[in-house]
Write a protein that binds this DNA or RNA. Structure first.
Lengths: 199, 199
DNA sequence: GACATGAAGTTAACACTGTCTACTTACCGC
DNA sequence: GCGGTAAGTAGACAGTGTTAACTTCATGTC
């Protein structure tokens, strides 16, 4: 659309355009601290237009966080379906989790941060828990097959998720110093962790 | 100081007052998104005064994050000195870690977030790594005493920290749903985790 | 085709922010 | 007492999030 050929008064699908523009801006310096006005400018509308689709900036961030959970769920389900037994699937899912988190740092941080104002509502959403269900299922399968230590599945699932989440966050924050925990700390930590989980 | 009895032109220790006021505001709704102007108001100075002590808001947040690491280090060292053998000390340190993180949610999030602009510099600071050293030492001691599985200490240390950090963050985010992981997920996860670490 | 209604835009305003500059006050060393 | 500098203040600037009132146009009904 050239300068002289303006977009029609009605955008057509501004809500989606705002979401996509905001996700793109997440990956720029400043991450989610982009401004709604800049999102509107890039989408080619006035600064007040987004308020017809989202009550405020926090609502837009909440929607993006849920999209992140959707994508994580897909990544884990995909890793699971391509693996062999439950333990292989669990390791594959863990790697997929880390690949996702480390490959989408700003989105991952937003998903688990308190920035979205009503993070409790986001984290209660079933879309947020879908990814966790994959882990629960694999642990139950592994225990049933005698491949995983028989402990409380719930506590074990929490432990597995904590390990994946903790490694992702510490790596993103640059806190896994090579001089302290070696060059490939994530791999080493995963190996150490699952050594204590598998039979 | 009454309304008519103004503070002398020179505050005396404004830098410290700004830090303390900002830490207090961290625990209010909005966390670190407080405004420097409001910090200055509460400290009883003009909105530009903080710029004589901190180049910008991010620098103030960075200093507060380091203070958080200092406090975490003290909590871990204290837990260690009050425990028996290395495994008891490791469990005690883990609990102290969780108590700290869960008791100071906004400060803990700031310590590990990307909000402070130059989080890399903060996380490279030796003050940030002090807490981690306590964990490294305990693992080495435990392995030497034959109480902990002999794996690469570095990878094991990363795994232990990831577990503590992951559990703290998931709990803070409200993602450990009782209907999914039970009522006392943190305790259960820690028990499950250390079952796989101790001999 | 005319009309009413409402969605989806725009324009303008408000109150606030972070940060900077120039100025003022006062502390400190000599 | 003076000079230099630290530590304040006053004011300005460019920007923000959000709201209200208005404009444009899409849609449904007759």
């Amino acid at each position: 659309m050239t300068e002289t050929q303006k977009r029609p008064y009605h955008h057509g699908d501004l809500r989606q355009a705002i979401i996509e523009t905001a996700i793109a801006m997440l990956n720029e310096p400043g991450g989610w601290q982009f401004t709604l006005r800049e999102v509107a400018r890039r989408a080619g509308v006035s600064h007040a237009a987004p308020y017809k689709h989202f009550p405020d900036k926090a609502a837009l961030l909440a929607e993006i966080a849920l999209i992140g959970f959707d994508r994580l769920h897909v990544a884990l389900a995909s890793a699971r379906s391509g693996a062999g037994n439950a333990t292989e699937a669990l390791v594959a899912a863990s790697r997929a989790y880390l690949v996702f988190g480390l490959g989408n740092p700003a989105l991952y941080r937003l998903m688990f941060g308190a920035e979205i104002g009503n993070s409790a509502a986001v984290h209660r959403d079933k879309r947020a828990m879908g990814a966790f269900d994959v882990v629960m299922d694999l642990l139950a399968e592994g225990q049933a097959a005698g491949l995983i230590e028989k402990r409380g599945v719930a506590g074990q699932a929490a432990s597995v998720w904590a390990q994946m989440h903790g490694l992702t966050m510490l790596k993103l924050d640059g806190m896994l110093r090579p001089e302290r925990v070696g060059e490939d700390a994530v791999e080493a930590a995963l190996a150490s962790f699952y050594e204590g989980v598998f039979v």
